[in-house]
Design a protein around this nucleic acid. Structure first.
Lengths: 295, 295
DNA sequence: TAAAAATACTCCATAGGTATTTTAT
DNA sequence: ATAAAATACCTATGGAGTATTTTTA
């Protein structure tokens, strides 16, 4: 049996006339009669009761008509959906994000993606450390990672999203808050609040390196796992922190930010599996590009 | 596009190998490749990513595979259902029934039909007068009528189900209840409870005719519309009634029944539309025949 | 270089066309 | 008597086969 049989049957059932149905199908009446006979023979069921004066559906025919219509619609639908998936308009994508972009870039990206690709099922996981994101990418737990380089893995491809200036977060009323800008050397005598431990936080490593390059060992007082916690600690006067500029957007009261001299910057990169050909991913990367170009 | 394309695609997607898929489909590999190319061209979507080493589904292909399987299953299903409907194993049937069989034959028929044809959607409407049933048949509100002849309509075909003896329903302790059997003449001085009015009840007409044949006019005291009400009226001592024997099975306390001399009987017939070729109806009539043959 | 998909071509099965007959009203 | 479906027969499109080439891991 072929879809042809269903199409022909639906036409005859709707026209209740072989001649008109044949016309509608742009074919002659005899082959149409034959195809219907073939269908009935294959099913072992009489679908149409025909005389020379009228053609009518048997009960089995009426049931089959419903089903045939549904099948034909399902076939069209399947094609349409495949096209949408191929175009990246439909599908699923999980995005991971490093802490320092969780409260600035991530919500903006989420909003834009949901607007641009309403039929894609997005999921967002913030406050993820770079190595965890790489592992999640490889485990296919996430499909797109927003993290701090470097990442060196042959199955992961990076592209820079933007370069964030480094700034210093201070508690309101702090001695250094009176200054317009700060140097690394100013932090020598300060207690520092930093991210995570065990070298898993890229920011932590960068801060430590900056201090050592300035000739002193950082006084790490508190280690926290979320950026939001870090800022709260600073606001509570537990220390100061070096953070990427977008963290300032979190807007926690009791905190002030001062630029760090020396044009220190840290990259934010988008990481994907090199072999991931997901059309949704391509769309999402395009949207991300648009978004960062704007700001 | 044809079902062939879907069948071939499913085979290749499952085997992930054109050669093996072709073998499974009992055909050569080149035409299989061509058909898949045709499908992709028609959809405008790449479903399979193939190299000489491996064949894998694209995301759109994975989605399309699901849909294709569903379509193929739906096609099989449609055929199976059409066969079931044609065999009368599936469908819908509404049965009407005259009052005097509503509490005896109808429940037995309902039970048997539901057992024998579990996938048929049956509906039963009891306590219907013969003319109403004929109208309902013609209006296609019911498909099978159990009624009292005569019915003379060219679009309705009758067949006798059984012949019910006529009996007399009396209130317990009634003067006539002392007798083993009664004649029509015994009713001359009795108040009668009868069905409906306006000549619409066949039983009413028959009782009236019997009385007149015996030389007296029936003393109709109460007219009711349901058999159950009629028996309750008798039980309450409001009168006596001539009813078909199966009414006794209703078992209303306070009522006794006595046979009527003279072998008076009334037919119970099954009525259907002459042009109704419903396979379910044929099955139901067969079941009805079985049921009445047993008893 | 070897395994597998893609081309190139050939063939024939069958979908579809034309002419005619049958059938039911 | 006539409209319409079925039958008979023919034609040709395109699905499937065979032989070969191309590709990539």
């Amino acid at each position: 049996m072929e879809l042809r049989h269903l199409r022909y049957f639906v036409a005859v059932a709707e026209e209740r006339h072989f001649g008109r149905a044949a016309e509608r199908l742009h074919m002659a009446q005899p082959p149409l009669s034959q195809q219907i006979q073939q269908l009935e023979a294959e099913l072992g069921v009489t679908l149409l009761r025909r005389t020379t004066r009228k053609v009518e559906l048997t009960r089995a025919g009426a049931v089959y008509l419903d089903r045939a219509r549904a099948v034909l619609a399902a076939v069209d639908d399947a094609g349409a959906e495949a096209r949408r998936v191929a175009a990246g308009l439909e599908g699923r994508l999980v995005v991971g994000c490093v802490g320092s972009a969780t409260y600035s870039l991530l919500p903006a990206l989420a909003r834009t993606l949901r607007e641009e690709l309403p039929d894609v099922d997005f999921a967002f996981r913030g406050e993820m450390l770079a190595p965890d994101q790489v592992a999640a990418l490889l485990a296919r737990t996430i499909d797109l990672a927003l993290l701090r380089p470097p990442v060196d893995h042959p199955s992961v491809r990076l592209s820079t999203v933007r370069r964030d200036r480094l700034i210093v977060a201070l508690p309101e009323g702090h001695r250094l808050a009176r200054r317009r800008r700060l140097g690394i050397a100013d932090l020598e005598t300060e207690d520092l609040v930093v991210h995570a431990s065990g070298g898993r936080s890229v920011m932590h490593g960068i801060v430590a390196r900056l201090c050592r390059a300035a000739g002193f060992e950082p006084r790490v007082r508190h280690e926290v796992s979320e950026t939001s916690t870090l800022v709260t600690f600073v606001a509570s006067g537990l220390g100061v922190a070096v953070v990427p500029e977008p963290v300032a957007e979190l807007g926690v009261t009791g905190t002030v930010y001062r630029p760090l001299t020396g044009e220190h910057r840290i990259d934010l990169a988008a990481a994907v599996r090199v072999d991931d050909d997901s059309p949704v991913l391509a769309r999402a990367l395009a949207v991300l590009g648009e978004l960062t170009r704007q700001t």
